[in-house]
Design a protein around this nucleic acid. Sequence first.
DNA 1: CTCACCACAGAGAGCGCTCTCTCCATTCTC
DNA 2: GAGAATGGAGAGAGCGCTCTCTGTGGTGAG
Lengths: 351, 351
Amino acid sequence: MSEGLPPSSGSSPTLEDVARAAGVSRATVSRVINGIRNVDPAIQETVKKAIAATGYVPNQAARSLVTRRTGAIALVVSGAGDESGEDPFPGQVFADPFFGRVAGGIVGFLRPRGVHPILMFAETAETRAQVLAYLRQGNADGAVLVSTNADDPLPRLLVEAGLPAVLFARPPEPLPISYVDVQHRAGAKLAADHLVARGCKRIATISGPMAVPASQERLAGFRDAMAVHGQPYIPWVEGSFTYPSGEAAMERLLAEHPDIDGVFVANDVMAQAALVVLRHHGRRVPEDVAVVGFDDSSAALACRPPLTTIRHPVEDMAAEMARLLLAHIEEPERQATSVIFEPALVIRESA
Amino acid sequence: MSEGLPPSSGSSPTLEDVARAAGVSRATVSRVINGIRNVDPAIQETVKKAIAATGYVPNQAARSLVTRRTGAIALVVSGAGDESGEDPFPGQVFADPFFGRVAGGIVGFLRPRGVHPILMFAETAETRAQVLAYLRQGNADGAVLVSTNADDPLPRLLVEAGLPAVLFARPPEPLPISYVDVQHRAGAKLAADHLVARGCKRIATISGPMAVPASQERLAGFRDAMAVHGQPYIPWVEGSFTYPSGEAAMERLLAEHPDIDGVFVANDVMAQAALVVLRHHGRRVPEDVAVVGFDDSSAALACRPPLTTIRHPVEDMAAEMARLLLAHIEEPERQATSVIFEPALVIRESA
DNA sequence: CTCACCACAGAGAGCGCTCTCTCCATTCTC
DNA sequence: GAGAATGGAGAGAGCGCTCTCTGTGGTGAG
């Protein structure tokens, strides 16, 4: 059939092999593969047959070398800022449904575009350097960064290195970098308004860690809205977004304010814990104490009773992050932008 | 200082730039970077200074082109075998704590070795082809595969393509491919023995989907052990490892066998649902009904009461998968091997 | 003193691809 | 019907790196 020798066995066929099989030049095969420019339909057909016959697959490394694109992006979970040499692996990160939703949103957007995320963690100075080096080596074209810590230096490092990156949540320090976020204050206001509308009189709140800007916003938004309702003083305990911290916070709240009849908890995981503590103390939800969470994560549905919460469109936000990142990669001079999402009240049974 | 021109601004410095700055050849710089062979210590020092001065970072694409290694591996979650053109993105996969543990174990092992996993999903014939093409293009050196479905064709496709791969769980059809697994039968026996030792007399079980070999094994192991204890007939309802299926299964079990006093549930997520249903029906756990789960996932601790369960060393298994994969990449002719882990009973409060 | 040997460093050939530039054959314009 | 414009294909120069091969100076053996 073909007059060329079969491609040297062992290694896969190259463009050259296909070109020989099709009786055309390397350049023409390349054009057909990349679907560009003017190639005679008949020749196109011949080339496609040759590709199928040889079982040709383009070599990504060779392609990247000249295009300076890898078609991969890094999904970086950046964190605690533990500056010791130690590098405790944050296995629990994956356990958080929040991370799962982010990953899901990103993969959902990228997959149809043939881009796949490379999972990376950066907890220490050393691993941050690793991430930076990894990107500068051209292993990925850019990064989507989910920072769990306010004083994470990675966003700044990425900007300084001129690497395309998009953040989840507004960076604490002003930085020319694109990000997506949700209107935390507006969400907290929805919770406050709902609790007040329900008739709750003695309302308290469990916040997230004050080191996280989102926590500050939710707390401030909640307080502001409650002040508008005539309640400037709100009992408040700080949690850390984890289940145990939610338990502890709710216990403390009940001990200090046994008469509360409504609680706004800054995320669903802590709210789930709060529900268990309330039941344990014989409080009925929502009859005795109404509870509103934040996030509308899978935890909200696993709660008994199902949790009334503030929907945080994490998947959409994650998809938007991916979209912004691809845009920045495509157009390096593009200005940093922010995309802010609207939260929404989701009424279930806990309030 | 250096006599060469500064590297052309805009693009990053190359080996050539460093070589010029150090006054040596490209080959020598390459030797220093890769830490091989005999290079005069004085020259080594000069080269290192030049690298620091120029801010040189090796280009991974160029390196991959000649070494035929990328230093990346694919973490593939392969699934439902939905052969329609549709490709419903399995967002819920991430919600499953099991997946999180696998990812955690793999990242924990790979990260210190500078390897990062590329997250991929393969649910349809089309996406399976995508994964295969991705690997053949040399985007990753091999794959670690977590299959959620028994008749997943991907393992076979990987073997046929001669791509290094390691599976989580034994493949249903015999295949020359390495895998890790746990002794499901032995784990189920631990559960059976524990329930019997507790004094349970009317024991039932909720299994996983029969399409999954692990589910079959757990059920068979449980039945065998119970038969040894003189109870050959065990009420049984099939679930699908999800929370709602656990709810439904427990409801049905209670309806059909209201007098049961012990249940073995084939995973923790369904056990969590079962606990809620039991409480809802006024059954005390473990006083009225003892419950044993399987996996020892994060769900086990989130249960009230905390779940007695069978520990499935998922993280260790995932790390072993990664180890095996790197070994196969290193040594392509290596024989396929299996590594089977021991389960263990973890006694908490539910039984 | 000559020769073999070793330790190093440089030269240079690719790895497989993209993309510009060049060239040729048409078709169009007047 | 001559010249210009245009569609379509090939030639060839790299992209940045690794690695083999070659070359050279210094050392030990005979």
